[in-house]
Write a protein that binds this DNA or RNA. Sequence first.
DNA 1: TAGATGTATATTGTATACAATTCTGGAACA
DNA 2: TGTTCCAGAATTGTATACAATATACATCTA
Lengths: 216, 216
Amino acid sequence: MDSGLPVKRTIADQVAELVRQRILTGQLKGGQPIRQEHLAAELGVSRIPLREALKQLAAEGFVTITSHKGAVVAELSIQEVEELFDIRLRLETWLLELAIPAMTERDLEALDENMEEQRRPDILPRWGDVNWRFHEIMYLPAGRPITLKLLKNIHDKIDRYLRLEVTMRSGFERALREHDGLIASCRAREVPAAVSLLERHIRETARGLIASLKVQ
Amino acid sequence: MDSGLPVKRTIADQVAELVRQRILTGQLKGGQPIRQEHLAAELGVSRIPLREALKQLAAEGFVTITSHKGAVVAELSIQEVEELFDIRLRLETWLLELAIPAMTERDLEALDENMEEQRRPDILPRWGDVNWRFHEIMYLPAGRPITLKLLKNIHDKIDRYLRLEVTMRSGFERALREHDGLIASCRAREVPAAVSLLERHIRETARGLIASLKVQ
DNA sequence: TAGATGTATATTGTATACAATTCTGGAACA
DNA sequence: TGTTCCAGAATTGTATACAATATACATCTA
């Protein structure tokens, strides 16, 4: 009994995940062109599965493909980042509203455990994943898998920029406090309080990120 | 001066659009497997561009690919349809709120023109497109292109089922009335009224579709 | 010299060929 | 009868080879 993911993973799928990971971690930077022959050779595969991977990543919004010119790592404008945060705001507050009444004690424990991980000293490189996981655990009881998948994609796109943030250190402490507050509200089943905390949390994160994007 | 779409369209892109269209129009039905060799031969292309097209469609949610088993046209459960309508509800009411203050006289005229088209006797086969176009015109002034693209994708997925609806005839008349009401509220710049009309409109559409899905 | 034009090179796009996997149907066996 | 197992047929996945297109640079023209 494994994770449920396909056991027989195709090369194209592996490559897609690897390239996505490289984009998220900043190994492949925004605007950087992707040379198929070069990357395929580096990975020891032919261009065919790489091209299929790129098509998928393009549909997910991580790269931009122009015919006969190739793929470049997608970049987000400040306006686009703001829009993504706006979408998060609408969808996540809704999910939280639905989720709180459905949360079990087990869910709340999972949130506590996640917070412990967030407080580990070596968390920074894994912050993106762990932070998403926190939000995911909160929204899972809402039973809205499509919305959740959509939000995961949005988080991934945003985290790429958050990861590089200078303000991360300060924004990080704030995020921890706000997460704590959210858990408390969830445990007390205070829906309006939790929602308004989440709203503030998302707005503050957006504000911090966008401010630091603008100074560049 | 053309539409801005790529002039040199690659075979893979053309195939992607064609297959998507066949899925939306029901020529390819939900659950139906797609045999690469067969479809490629029918279209007079090799399997390579077809496979790339399928990867893209999979990322967009129109087909489901299982390794070494192939692609099948995706089907939506009733629960998934409900979730998609829920997402529409949250995002479209938000866009409308933003859009109304920004609407120009030109936008309102475009809505009127669209209504004329909706009232043509031969509209049914084009209903999906024209209906989406109506909503798109309303939301465009909100200036949220990512959200709009996301909603377009959701509309497409839903319209595939709406198109086959028995209730279409009756739901159709209702939709026209509700569209008229929406335009009136937009013209009067009555944001809360318009939003609550839109909310009712989406809920009614969902109710009709889901009811008819359940009787099957 | 500025601009246009042609040609070589690099890169992407597609077809064909082959490898790997899954599916099918029937033989062997209890 | 029902089950297991094993060809081989069908289908998908990937590599190689070639075609189409774009880019860079040299050449020509005014």
